[in-house]
Design a protein around this nucleic acid. Structure first.
Lengths: 178, 178
DNA sequence: AGGATCATGTAACCGGTTACATGATTAC
DNA sequence: GTAATCATGTAACCGGTTACATGATCCT
């Protein structure tokens, strides 16, 4: 499961709490991985049981106490193993609702489909904006030496989103020509 | 859950067995939705309990008997409701392992990353080939009036895959310039 | 002879989502 | 006053995957 490696990777930059991990992910890994807090806590538990991370309680005066997680040597090894592993397939199971609707779209009015495609485009354009906002400053870690790599990861989502917009525009043209 | 609507949509073309549904999906909806037989059977059970489909046993002399599922009027209504519904968001939670690896890729040798990106490209090029094979003849339903829509759905995957290849090539160039 | 195809399912598991529970502090 | 932020978790649920179980017939 890749979430564990994303967490491990972030902890390799600096030890932090589950809550801080989620903030980091919301800001920096949103383009390729997100997880709700509940899942992050669960995963950190598993990671600790496997001894890939350790935790210590940090007392705070005003804010609630927090549990700081730190990557272990075993954890670093496992992270590197995963990074250098060549999976048999990079294929992810596709589950695309918009495509499903278009596939079955002959059952409804073309105008209805066109309308939904326009909604789709509007949303994807907003995503595009968000992505370029993220790339402008990698929050909390500007100037970090890994920023080149972070930018490359983000760029994938940007290119894919742009091609989704191209696709939707193409569909609209095709449907209008009917 | 969209799988139920994909199933409903296929059954709206013609009644068929769970096994036949899977074959159909493998051939025609692979670019946006796949499911193993076990899940299709489970889903058909749910659909039947909700009375969106009915089933009858069909005896066969040589081959094993099969259970033919047929969409009901309720099922057709629900399918149309789904097709004309405007979801608050088209956003799908992204979980992209390749991006995760690139994000954390500063931890390993550039050559290693480049190698994996090349593997990635090779696989995506194979996918591209497969997609164009599918589009050439929509299996079992060639000439179907919905084929225009089927083609549009497939085209999305094609454009997205092409942009993933572009991205990987870009990354390789960037890593080589380091 | 051996593997693919036809045909139906169940069971265990796993990753992820949503809802629930608690509670202080800070910023508007 | 009220919403957001900080901070930790548990529980129920759900969609999807993998493995198991069975067995004939068709193709090479």
């Amino acid at each position: 499961m890749s979430l564990s490696y994303v967490i491990l990777g972030i902890l390799s930059y600096e030890p932090m709490s589950g809550y801080a991990l989620r903030s980091f992910m919301e800001k920096n890994t949103k383009s390729f991985w997100t997880a709700p807090l509940s899942q992050i806590y669960k995963e950190l538990g598993t990671l600790e049981r496997k001894e890939w991370v350790t935790s210590r309680m940090e007392h705070q005066e005003v804010r609630p106490d927090k549990k700081i997680y730190e990557i272990t040597d075993i954890g670093r090894d496992e992270l590197l193993n995963w990074l250098t592993d060549h999976p048999k397939s990079f294929e992810v199971p596709v589950r695309d609702e918009m495509s499903a609707k278009v596939f079955l779209g002959a059952k409804v009015n073309s105008d209805e489909m066109i309308f939904q495609l326009k909604l789709f485009i509007r949303e994807k354009q907003k995503t595009l904006q968000e992505l370029s906002d993220i790339s402008e400053s990698f929050h909390g870690f500007v100037g970090h030496k890994d920023n080149l790599h972070w930018g490359m990861a983000l760029r994938k989502r940007l290119l894919v989103t742009a091609s989704e917009i191209d696709w939707a525009k193409e569909c609209i043209t095709e449907l209008q020509d009917l």
